[in-house]
Nucleic acid binder design. Structure first.
Length: 602
DNA sequence: GTCGTAATAT
DNA sequence: CATATTACGA
């Protein structure tokens, strides 16, 4: 066993106290069995007569947890009668007669198992499984008091297992809350022989299996592979129980959804999903637009995706509720379907896993907004995540999105810059001056600057969204400051046309970067190249400066093959050589300015 | 451990 | 395709 010492101790006497009804016409056989069972700490009540046994259970239905009944050619009818009568008692049939039809009949009549005689200790040792099985398969609410302790013990043991063992799943602690209504975390098991009160409530018959899943009602998946395999080793059993519990927990935990089949539930705290899926919590349909639970808060919702029954696969997608209707914003338009679509998709079984975030317009807006608030350079996943306040989003999601976001910006901005400061390329390349024209380019520049024909791939191509909006488009609303969302390509339709000529920027007087540097006096020419010193003040806050510049430079250097900015003529080889030699000659330019001046030759 | 990045997987 | 995941370096 994979148990640790603790586990072993826990398991060791687990069955202790379980009451076994033994029925066998042969007194010798009975005595033998009784001894064996008692040696295993079962409490045995032996009967050699069906009637006695029947009366015993009828008088005290909850006196036993499990029964072992021998069936012989001669007493078969009585045995069957017992079986039928004691339906609520897990009954193991045993016989020397290994007749298939007899075995079949026993099982058909409700026997939980048929054991061939002789009954070795190995066969007897684990009969408790049936008790546990029953305990866990009884409708959660109806579980008998007598079975509760059993369940509790099992849960406790599983706890140990979970905690000590490999799969420490966060939910472990909650297991009992979820599925097992009655379980408690106490480890009370050992000790008295009466640990397990006999069953008092007639319970369901075997059929129900993992009824525990009750919570996950609508889902077919929930029951997926619960095939029956009663007599497997305890590992099997445990495994099943664990799964069941975990599933259950999953269903309840409204944070978690489906996972792919990677049963690993570890899933650390990071990813949680908001809308739970077990369709219990809140019907998204209802509240979706009505009102955000928290202002500005966005929920992410899942979409059941391809959860074909068989596969446990069940990717969900996060969606935000468009509750915060930004007016008219594109948001509304985009996939409405999802919003109200199906919710359910309970994360059944093992599925609680990765979800895809659907970066809808609104969600993206939030993202952008967060980025803006943080400042482009200070926007880091964790902070963004905080600002976004979108449940269910993980840092990874944001990081991933941020990565993409940055890439796009990089692609676009740099070009603009270069256009603006044509020469910069050479200069920078020479490591002249990393120093920037401080004028960080206002993010939105990109909007305007974009070449009429998208030279570069545009991020949120309209096709993405049904609505036809580029997700990036900041259609109506612009966050206070820079619209970093320059992402979108055409925030201001029509305006961008003049990319070059006029910065058609949205009126943003207060914006740090209110005007385009391009024309403005020496912006790049003089200022930038040289010591970042001189210029800086003018541009004041232009924070983006350094970082951005670096990026630009990097880009230019690393991707010389990219089209040069408009109006920029690639430096001729001569030019470059000349420049180099010049520098070489001049050695270290005493004064940066000097160098600058010499720069323009091209 | 987070963050950024790129490669890769889904 | 858009994202997620992973791995690696900082």
């Amino acid at each position: 066993m994979v148990c640790t010492a603790n586990d072993l101790s826990a398991w060791k006497d687990f069955p202790k106290g379980l009451r076994v009804l033994l029925l066998d016409d042969n007194s010798d056989s009975v005595a033998d069995l009784k001894l064996k069972l008692e040696a295993m700490d079962y409490i045995v009540s032996a009967f050699c007569n069906e009637n006695e046994a029947l009366s015993a259970i009828s008088n005290k239905p909850d006196s036993f947890h499990v029964a072992i009944v021998e069936v012989t050619a001669s007493n078969s009818n009585q045995s069957f009668k017992f079986l039928e009568t004691a339906k609520d008692l897990p009954t193991i049939m045993t016989s020397n007669v290994h007749c298939l039809s007899t075995m079949m009949k026993c099982i058909a009549l409700g026997a939980v198992e048929f054991l061939r005689k002789p009954l070795s200790e190995d066969k007897l040792r684990d009969i408790w499984q049936h008790v546990v099985h029953k305990a866990f398969n009884t409708g959660g609410s109806v579980i008998s008091d007598s079975l509760k302790p059993v369940k509790e013990s099992v849960v406790s043991m599983l706890h140990l297992k979970l905690e000590n063992g490999e799969s420490k799943n966060a939910n472990a602690g909650n297991i009992e809350n979820g599925s097992m209504a009655c379980a408690n975390e106490n480890e009370q098991s050992e000790g008295s022989d009466n640990k397990y009160p006999a069953p008092s409530t007639p319970q369901l018959k075997q059929g129900v299996r993992w009824g525990i899943d009750a919570d996950c009602q609508d889902n077919t998946n929930c029951s997926t592979e619960k095939e029956s395999m009663e007599q497997d080793g305890e590992l099997m059993q445990i495994s099943k129980i664990m799964h069941s519990m975990l599933d259950d927990a999953g269903c309840q935990d409204n944070n978690i959804n489906c996972s792919t089949e990677k049963e690993s539930i570890e899933q650390d705290g990071e990813s949680k999903f908001v809308e739970t899926t077990c369709d219990n919590s809140n019907a998204e349909g209802t509240l979706q637009e009505s009102q955000p639970q928290r202002p500005g808060e966005t929920l992410v919702k899942e979409e059941h995706d391809s959860n074909d029954g068989s596969k446990s696969e069940c990717d969900k997608y996060l969606h935000l509720h468009h509750k915060e209707g930004l007016k008219g914003s594109d948001g509304a338009a985009e996939n409405p379907s999802r919003t109200s679509g199906h919710h359910r998709t309970c994360g059944n079984k093992s599925n609680r896993k990765k979800m895809k975030v659907d970066w809808t317009t609104d969600l993206h807006k939030k993202f952008v907004h967060a980025v803006e608030e943080l400042g482009v350079d200070q926007a880091i996943p964790s902070r963004i995540l905080e600002l976004m306040k979108v449940e269910g989003l993980t840092r990874h999601n944001v990081a991933s999105h941020l990565q993409k976001y940055r890439m796009h910006r990089r692609h676009i901005l740099p070009k603009e810059d270069e256009r603006r400061w044509p020469q910069s390329r050479d200069q920078m390349a020479r490591s002249y001056y990393p120093h920037k024209p401080i004028m960080a380019y206002p993010p939105y520049h990109s909007n305007h600057m974009l070449p009429p024909g998208p030279v570069y791939p545009v991020w949120g191509a309209p096709n993405n969204h049904p609505a036809g909006f580029p997700m990036w488009g900041p259609p109506g609303y612009h966050p206070p400051w820079q619209q970093a969302e320059s992402w979108h390509w055409k925030p201001y339709p029509g305006m961008h046309a003049d990319a070059w000529g006029c910065p058609v920027m949205p009126p943003q007087p207060h914006t740090p970067y209110s005007s385009f540097p391009q024309n403005s006096s020496g912006f790049h020419n003089s200022g930038m190249v040289d010591n970042g010193y001189s210029m800086p003040q003018s541009s004041v806050d232009l924070h983006p400066a350094e970082e951005v510049i670096d990026k630009v430079v990097k880009e230019a250097i690393s991707k010389p093959w990219l089209p040069l900015p408009l109006g920029l003529k690639p430096p001729s080889a001569e030019c470059v050589l000349a420049e180099l030699s010049r520098q070489g000659i001049s050695t270290v330019p005493p004064h940066p300015h000097h160098i600058n001046g010499s720069h323009h030759p091209c």
